[in-house]
Design a protein around this nucleic acid. Sequence first.
DNA 1: CGTGATTGCATAGCATACTATGCATGTGGA
DNA 2: TCCACATGCATAGTATGCTATGCAATCACG
Lengths: 147, 147
Amino acid sequence: MELPYRREQSAGYLTNWAARLFVRALERRLTGGGGGSGTMPVYFALNEGGALSQKALARWAAVEQPTMANTLDRMERDGLVSRAPDPDDGRSMLISLTPLGRERATESLTVARKVNALGLSALKPAEREPFLDMLGRIVAALEADKG
Amino acid sequence: MELPYRREQSAGYLTNWAARLFVRALERRLTGGGGGSGTMPVYFALNEGGALSQKALARWAAVEQPTMANTLDRMERDGLVSRAPDPDDGRSMLISLTPLGRERATESLTVARKVNALGLSALKPAEREPFLDMLGRIVAALEADKG
DNA sequence: CGTGATTGCATAGCATACTATGCATGTGGA
DNA sequence: TCCACATGCATAGTATGCTATGCAATCACG
């Protein structure tokens, strides 16, 4: 008995769709040359003024190392971050925000809050925390998957 | 008063993360050359044997027209779909699955069910339908956004 | 102290997604 | 009929993400 496949009942499809809409909503509001959605985790990880290795940033953002390398290349090209050799490890570079990068980080944080609020406006206040909790559990389950 | 930004409380970040994990879980299980995550909506839209225009497929998959054009180019290259001129409209092509495409569609459907089940295994059965409903409402809210 | 394994980064190649733009066909009104 | 507008598709360029792979620096152990 094959059940018909319905998009509205596919967790993966709906999640992917929602994610693309979040990115579009974000990028419509980030036209100032501060980079798109990929730069956001970098901003937030470095916003307190610290300097992190590429590896640490990749782990923080939950992306693979070459993805972060690409993102940092673009951000460096656009004057948003700078790389400096790690004095304690000749393989490693320490990444930090430039003054321009810090400006953009602040703006991006504001925009991200607005977009999150927009998405969550579809939920009743009492639903929001359980929703985020469920999403977090799904992330954990898929992170553990080695199938 | 700046609240600290926490990934675990950002709906956009969590949704994007979960979406990437769904895609990775899917693609780890789809190594047979039948295409990746982008081909799935095409399979499901055409699985009943019909033929649709590129425009209709893009709307069904909720992607922009050039994205669908790219996906169909790859699928045509890999022998999964064929394009035929629409006899009623000289601008339009009708897309249909090849026999190979129909095989892959069946396999992909099975895999998609498994991955959805894996993700949803993190939720109690009673949570699943409300979760999908909430996700659907978020999609609707973001679709309506013109900000 | 070497040497082999591990670690951090870079590069290549690709898929999936977007916006902007152009071309060809189709449609409807003057 | 003819022209303006609308519509379907193609192309260019870019961003974000992945896997596979290679290199150089570091580390751990005999």
